[in-house]
């Protein structure tokens, strides 16, 4: 049993996404004590000096080999362009598991890969457990209103995506500080026909922090009353180094973009800190954020359901509290 485990790595800009380090740690856990190695697949555009740099970094985090796929069609988010080279690599390596992040990229790539290989697929795992006779993966249902545990019963390779922010991250190994260049392979260019092209990418996320990976989220609901109110939340988020989210009510009312929506429709988030401002706490919203580590609720209505899941509550006016907190944080920043 020396089947390797393959991690589908992902970069954002020139840096490796944190979920990739989580996936490496999950892979190391799945290997247990048995012999076997963690390999990484990394796809990126063009000639790729940055890709080489990222590959060297992956080696220092415990990957024994990194396989690079680069093509002009490959962008950060073009899963279709990664599919064929990844498929070939999986057929060559015969890994026991393929692990990717449950990100925009991973959640497109993994099911297609699974279907092409007739492999089992468990999506969006929040926990991985070792059993005497295998592995169990916990994942949310109904956006977190319930959790199920699943196991693979079919043949390897098994495909898993993991939810960002829910797993330990791998630590860099000092011993391999001088990365072994021969452990970086470039996969042959795919001869498959062109399936789609990305014509343009328009960056709209002001802070550049993805909601599902954010450590801190400041979210607003109907009580924020408009896009001006959301600017107050943005200022607080900027001070905290976090991202802004919203409830469906706020999105439906046009206060902000749908891409910010958190809930059963929208994104499910599990940050270290969730500050809910003017959010009453509809069931469908709670499903998307109730697994956050610490929840702070600010709402005028003491009966709002959000208080039932908040660790700390303030019954008060968010238009007073949010700017006050922003100012306090600014003062702190100046002292530091």
């Amino acid at each position: 049993m020396s089947q390797p485990i393959l991690v589908v790595a992902e970069c954002k800009g020139s840096s490796i996404r944190r979920v990739t380090f989580e996936a490496i740690a999950v892979a190391q856990k799945l290997l247990q004590q048995r012999a076997g190695a963690v390999h990484c697949f990394l796809a990126g555009p063009g000639e790729g000096a940055e890709l080489q740099q990222a590959a060297r970094e992956l080696l220092t985090y415990g990957a024994s080999e990194v396989h690079l796929a680069s093509s002009s069609e490959q962008t950060e988010s073009n899963a279709l362009a990664s599919l064929k080279p990844l498929q070939s690599l999986v057929q060559q390596l015969q890994p026991q598991f393929v692990i990717a992040g449950h990100t925009a990229y991973g959640r497109e790539l993994a099911p297609r890969l699974a279907a092409s290989l007739a492999s089992g697929y468990i999506a969006d795992a929040t926990a991985v457990e070792l059993l005497d006779d295998g592995f169990a993966f916990t994942r949310p249902l109904y956006a977190g209103k319930a959790f199920e545990t699943r196991s693979f019963t079919g043949a390897a390779p098994h495909i898993v995506t993991i939810r960002p922010n829910n797993h330990e991250t791998a630590a860099p190994l000092e011993a391999v500080a001088a990365a072994n260049e021969s452990a970086i392979n470039t996969l042959p260019a795919s001869a498959s026909p062109l399936r789609s092209i990305v014509r343009e990418v328009v960056s709209r996320v002001s802070s550049g922090i993805d909601l599902t990976e954010a450590d801190i989220i400041v979210a607003g609901g109907r009580g924020v009353r408009g896009s001006e109110g959301f600017q107050l939340l943005q200022q607080l988020a900027d001070q905290l180094g976090g991202a802004v989210g919203a409830s469906r009510a706020a999105c439906d009312a046009g206060y902000c973009d749908y891409s910010l929506q958190i809930g059963q429709t929208g994104k499910v988030v599990t940050p270290q800190l969730y500050i809910a401002c003017g959010i009453s706490g509809a069931i469908q919203h709670l499903a998307g954020m109730s697994q956050s580590r610490t929840i702070i609720a600010i709402n005028k209505d003491p009966e709002a359901p959000i208080f039932s899941i908040a660790d700390y509550g303030i019954v008060g006016d968010l238009f007073e509290i949010v700017p006050l907190l922003t100012d306090e944080l600014k003062k702190l920043g100046r002292q530091a």
Binding site: A136, F147, S151, F152, D311, Y312, G313, G316
Partner: peptide
């Protein structure tokens, strides 16, 4: 058959402990 996965358990989400309301003026709460 080769792509099968099986559910072995289903559970409600872990319960959250009851939180605490902060008291006082807006300044004190902040």
């Amino acid at each position: 058959a080769s792509s099968a996965t099986v559910r072995t358990a289903i559970t409600p989400p872990p319960a959250r402990q009851t939180g605490r309301l902060l008291q006082g003026s807006s300044e004190q709460q902040t």
